[in-house]
């Protein structure tokens, strides 16, 4: 099934980055407002699926040469690692820590271990969803 979707392909090239940046925004917004790793991850997945629709699997794999299984693994490790950090301080599992730092450019910002956990969730969602889509689309 080879169609020549000039309009779709051209828009996708622009829209992909907009969706991707928006997903990053949503991911960071999850700090205090609605958003977070899962939603951000789903948005990124949506962007990649749009690429898959506009182009084909091979082109996308060439453009994004990640192993998505490894990505899932890294995400799970990040999430588990953040949660398990509590073990070394002998406080209950999943206990999070945060503090306020003054960073250049951002000014005073609160940094939170829960964000690392969320980054893990982000990677797991993207990794597993794309793995599933690849395994369906792989042999058609």
């Amino acid at each position: 099934m080879k169609t020549n979707d000039v309009i779709l392909q051209t828009t996708t090239k622009v829209v992909f980055f907009i969706i991707f940046l928006f997903s990053i925004h949503i991911f960071f917004a999850g700090h205090y407002t609605p958003g977070g790793g899962f939603v951000g991850g789903l948005l990124t997945t949506g962007a990649i699926v749009l690429l898959l629709l506009a182009f084909d699997l091979k082109t996308v794999q060439k453009a994004l040469p990640f192993n998505f299984t490894i990505m899932t693994g890294i995400g799970l490790l990040l999430a588990l690692g953040t949660a398990a950090g509590a073990i070394f301080f002998n406080v209950p599992f999943f206990t999070h820590a945060f503090d306020y730092f003054t960073l250049p450019l951002f000014g005073e910002t609160s940094l939170h271990t829960a964000m690392v956990f969320d980054a893990g969730v982000f990677l797991v969602v993207v990794g597993s969803a794309i793995t599933i889509i690849q395994s369906i689309g792989g042999d058609s």
């Binding site: 899962f38 597993s128 969803a129 599933i132 395994s135 369906i136």
Partner: peptide, 16 residues
């Protein structure tokens, strides 16, 4: 939210 995440995973798997 938890239940949605789970049903998302299960539905995706079921589709495959």
């Amino acid at each position: 939210l938890t239940a949605i995440v789970i049903s998302f995973g299960v539905t995706a798997f079921m589709l495959v």
